[in-house]
């Protein structure tokens, strides 16, 4: 239980104890220096106060050993702070591959979130306790930022980019999330609640309320047909464009000889601005869909492309290197 004036928010994710430990470590170092310098100043002020009006001080111009000491010691401590901070950060930027993927779209001034089964939520997020969760986020307009102080995580939500954020909730409960990047008039009320549930409750909640939702794979498949993507992206690999079966998560060889991991950001770019990266062996024929699809439609299409992973027909497109391992998602 927290007191009336708490000094830190609740610890409700895998990151919280690490971030708080870092906080204590750096606070301890800084307190030491702040107290030492302040004490020295106060002592000197008293001890060397002027006793007669004409008095002058002793002409000490410096000391090489002292200068060296107070360059080297702070430097070493700084490197320690840097190193520990880097370890936590790198962990934070590398989501586990089996995380529960949730799509997040920010727009002035609301959050739209979508569970893996297509269930959509507004300004609410339900997640199971103990399960790695990855948020794949983009914005429809300006830059937002999804932040959950109780989880000690936040990440900017940038239009034209997918940014990911992951955490593992460790405590059942309801926690505030905020928009932390100033985004215009109602920035302050662009927030909501994360509800962390027991896994079986989460499953029940998911199936109980999914009646109204459209499965994103189904929606994506329909878009894929409606927008005539099929005419070129034939699944037998004989179309004018590469087959998309098994593309997601694998490596794609490009016309310039380089390879790229087919993650969400790559698929998104290939839809919105296909000429940015041309698959080896194909012509730049596809029109850009920038401005023609909503962020949700783009996500539906990506979900559909992802679902083609398990297709029994092997991928054959010239540029496609069949993915060997299980999917290695989303690391840039």
């Amino acid at each position: 239980m927290q007191s009336q004036l708490p000094l830190y928010p609740e610890q409700a994710s895998n990151f919280a104890p690490h971030v708080d430990a870092l906080m204590l470590f750096i606070t301890a170092i800084c307190l030491f220096f702040a107290v030492a310098v302040t004490a020295a100043i106060i002592f000197f002020l008293y001890k060397f106060r002027r006793k007669t009006p004409g008095e002058i001080g002793v002409a000490i111009h410096g000391d090489m050993r002292l200068e060296t000491a107070w360059i080297v010691v702070p430097l070493l401590l700084a490197l320690a702070m840097f190193g520990w901070g880097a370890v936590v950060y790198v962990d934070f930027r590398r989501a586990p591959s089996d995380a529960l993927d949730i799509y997040v779209i920010g727009k002035q001034w609301m959050w739209k979130l979508q569970q893996p089964n297509g269930l959509k939520e507004i300004n609410e997020l339900h997640v199971p306790v103990g399960q790695d969760v990855r948020l794949i986020m983009s914005s429809e307009d300006v830059i937002h930022d999804f932040s959950v102080p109780a989880f000690r995580v936040k990440m900017d939500v940038v239009p034209g980019h997918y940014n990911t954020l992951w955490f593992r909730p460790t405590k059942v409960g309801k926690y505030h999330f905020y928009c932390s990047q100033y985004c215009g008039t109602n920035h302050a009320i662009m927030g909501g609640w994360v509800t962390v549930m027991e896994p079986d409750e989460y499953t029940a909640w998911l199936s109980g309320s999914s009646g109204s939702s459209v499965n994103p794979v189904v929606a994506g498949a329909k878009l894929f047909a409606d927008r005539a993507c099929l005419t070129c992206h034939a699944s037998d690999g004989k179309g004018r464009a590469p087959s998309l079966n098994g593309v997601f998560g694998g490596q794609v060889r490009l016309a310039d000889g380089s390879t790229v991991t087919a993650d969400e950001s790559y698929i998104r770019e290939s839809i919105l601005n296909p000429n940015a990266k041309i698959v080896a062996g194909y012509q730049p024929l596809m029109p850009p869909y920038q401005g023609q699809l909503t962020e949700e439609q783009t996500l539906d299409l990506i979900s559909y492309v992802k679902s083609l992973q398990a297709d029994p027909v092997p991928a054959t497109g010239a540029g496609v290197i069949p993915s060997t391992a299980s999917q290695t998602t989303g690391k840039n």
């Binding site: 606070t27 220096f33 930022d145």
Partner: peptide, 21 residues
């Protein structure tokens, strides 16, 4: 001193995740 030392908190990658903005 306080301003400078608290800069060390923000320069710390792991801590900045929580403190940023």
């Amino acid at each position: 001193l306080v301003g400078g030392l608290t800069g060390l908190f923000l320069a710390c990658l792991g801590l900045d995740i929580h403190l940023h903005d």
